[in-house]
Amino acid sequence: MTESTLTGKSMDAGGTGETMIELTGVEKWFGDFQALKGIDLVVGKKETVVVCGPSGSGKSTLIRCINRLEVHNRGRIVVDGTELSDDVRDIQAIRRETGMVFQSFNLFPHLTILENITLAPRQVRRKPKKEAEQTAMDLLTRVKIPDQANKFPGQLSGGQQQRAAIARALAMEPKVMLFDEPTSALDPEMIKEVLDTMEQLADSGMTMVCVTHEMGFARAVADRVVFMADGAIVEVNDPETLFTSPQEQRTQLFLSQILVHPS
């Protein structure tokens, strides 16, 4: 595959064709170590992009740059028309529009599930308590754990916690959802309930960037799959093509490994 076709695939917005996230030439260093080596990627509105690749390839770093949990050193990141800069207002604006779900859930253990979900809408969006709680209950119903509302995170199973974390992110009514290996800390029987929630979310037209190695999920939901290695995008394609006839050797190697040892 030539340079130009790769760029073409990664820079073609999927979904509705309009651009939601645009990364151009994004580089990130941790000290002397370059974790991202010039990432170009466009994510279209209502598109679901799955990012996969070997450990340490920079997947987390990539999506953490999108909401400024990491600061990129070079290149441009534009989310819904706002460019990330050092301006705190731009950062806050982008974070308000971007929900994030973490591998380790990161629910606030000192607050109930309901408080976890209503916190940001009340504090950031200044929603009245009643309204925020109403929305929270609707979301909890959507992720199928309405009866856990008044428990503390520690009293829930991993799968329930992750669905609560998804509800918490959704409560801010974000335009983009970022997922960083949302199922890799879960027992196998809980993975499905979280993937179902994510699939349902993608079907509802949410723009999503998911770091995951769940092939089934990628096949069913992703518009495009991005394969990364060593801080660079190696290959971008629709899931069927990428999984069945990968063009690059790196991709083939990686796929053969995870098919032997599914993660």
């Binding site: 806050q92 974070r95 929900g99 916190l119 940001a120 950031v124």
Partner: peptide
């Protein structure tokens, strides 16, 4: 855990609110 502040940041809370509502209550407890 570092994830606590990150989750608060990702939700768009201001730095002061991250500290006051998420970090301090847990740290003091």
């Amino acid at each position: 855990p570092r994830g606590q502040r990150e989750a608060a940041q990702a939700l768009g809370l201001s730095p002061w609110k991250q500290t006051r509502l998420i970090i301090l209550p847990q740290a003091l407890r």
